[in-house]
Design a protein around this nucleic acid. Sequence first.
DNA 1: TCCATATTTCCAATATGCTCGAATTATTCG
DNA 2: CGAATAATTCGAGCATATTGGAAATATGGA
Lengths: 118, 118
Amino acid sequence: MESKAAVNMLSALGHEGRLAIFRLLVKAGPDGIAAGEIARTLDVLPNSLSANLNVLSHAGLIASRREGRSIIYFADYAAMSAMLGFLMEDCCNGAPEICAPLGAILDRAKACAPGAVC
Amino acid sequence: MESKAAVNMLSALGHEGRLAIFRLLVKAGPDGIAAGEIARTLDVLPNSLSANLNVLSHAGLIASRREGRSIIYFADYAAMSAMLGFLMEDCCNGAPEICAPLGAILDRAKACAPGAVC
DNA sequence: TCCATATTTCCAATATGCTCGAATTATTCG
DNA sequence: CGAATAATTCGAGCATATTGGAAATATGGA
């Protein structure tokens, strides 16, 4: 990943509202959530939400599909993974102390990876 | 880590110049780098650099110590680790697909952790 | 076609962030 | 003390981001 793409993603997530949106979408999984439901869940105005969804989308962190009258947004896992990889490469090269403590989280992720209940 | 702290860190890193500074400091290790040397290395004005160091510092990503006339900046590994942990917890809970691919990076970090040459 | 729903786009006001020159503080050394 | 070096702070100008109201677009159903 290029530095510029990482900057775009980081600055997109560096906003309370957008981080909340993204977290919601990540937890929602591939099914995603309709814009209106996001607005209701997070209690934000639809137009503000639309603007923030646009920022996240341009950063490559989320994508969307239309479903009837609704537009469903969902997180782009590959992009998120690439961004985390970029940050980790960056620091593990010079400082394994940063990444090593993340092992526990990683192990849990690996264990759950196949789609188990966990 | 609270969401607000994460937002501060993410938005601090969501700036090309600051991301460059932070990457430099992470690679420099605990010894850190003097402000002046950072400015020369990245070719930025000292006052702009100072402003950006201040942002990173307030976000908790870096810290500093005085050494003679110079002020040495160094990355806060624990903070960086906490931020990555926050993001990974967030996504691994709902989406192990994101974190699982990071295993290779993690393994390398673990292998290097003791301070080997690698 | 007409209406209700879902979402986006447009626009203006406000706020925040960025950059750069100039001045200021802190430290070391002669 | 005075000069030189290192870094920060101040302040203005410019750019960008954020917000919210109002209007516009798209879809589905009566």
